[in-house]
Simulated assay, not measured.
Amino acid sequence: MAEPAYRNAGYEDILALPEHRVGEIIGGELYSHPKPAPRHARAYSALGYLVGGPFDGGRNGPGGWWIIDEPEIHLAGDILVPDMAGWCRERLPVLPDSAWFELVPDWVCETLSPATKRTDRALKMPRYAREGAAHLWLVDPDTHTLEVYSLQDDRHWRLLKILKGDDEVRQPPFEAVGFSLGNLWA
């Protein structure tokens, strides 16, 4: 897990980071990591296309979602930047005018990398659960896997499925349209 750069960090600490770094404030501490390597960026870009087309754009799918790459999300003092997140348009009819969101997403997707996987699992997953994100996907381009989680009533994650390789992805909340997981791997 990346060591925090500053304790009692503020938004100005994120703004002061070099352009090639992503900053998040978790539990009052600034965490910074490099932007994703091409293989990891490719995985979440492909996922954005495969999920965004039918669910955000309504192309050959039901629509009804906002699917956003690297949104900045402000929740209970934390500033989180998942690789991708989605909001049902019923809950978020209009995108905010600010550069960030203050409403917890309905779906969060983190692309695991050596620099981020411990922070994603140990720090961010519990916060998404605490705030009530209903669905979480963890994509691992190194192991070619997708872990699918659903939030339980007690605000804990339940692992629904681990997909691998070229398995068909038809998982909550996007089970209406399937695609091959293999499309994510470069």
Rank of each mutant, 00 (worst) to 15 (best):
R130W: 14
V81F: 02
P4H: 14
R130D: 15
V169M: 08
A115V: 04
G64N: 11
S98R: 15
R118T: 11
V169W: 12
A46R: 14
V139F: 12
N183M: 12
L136N: 05
G132A: 03
P114R: 09
G57D: 13
E90D: 14
D154S: 04
H74M: 02
L136I: 03
V81S: 03
D56Y: 12
E24P: 00
L17V: 00
R39D: 11
I73C: 01
S113D: 06
L50S: 08
E70R: 09
V169N: 09
H135V: 00
G178C: 00
T119F: 03
G132M: 07
M1V: 05
W107N: 07
A41Q: 15
G86A: 15
R127T: 04
H144A: 05
L146E: 11
F174M: 09
H135W: 15
W65S: 05
A176T: 13
W157I: 03
L103Q: 15
E147R: 12
W157S: 04
G28M: 06
Y44G: 00
K161S: 14
L80R: 14
P172H: 09
R7H: 13
D106P: 05
E147N: 08
G48M: 03
L15F: 07
C109R: 09
R118S: 04
D97F: 01
N8I: 00
P105R: 11
P38D: 08
P96I: 05
L151E: 13
A134L: 13
A85K: 13
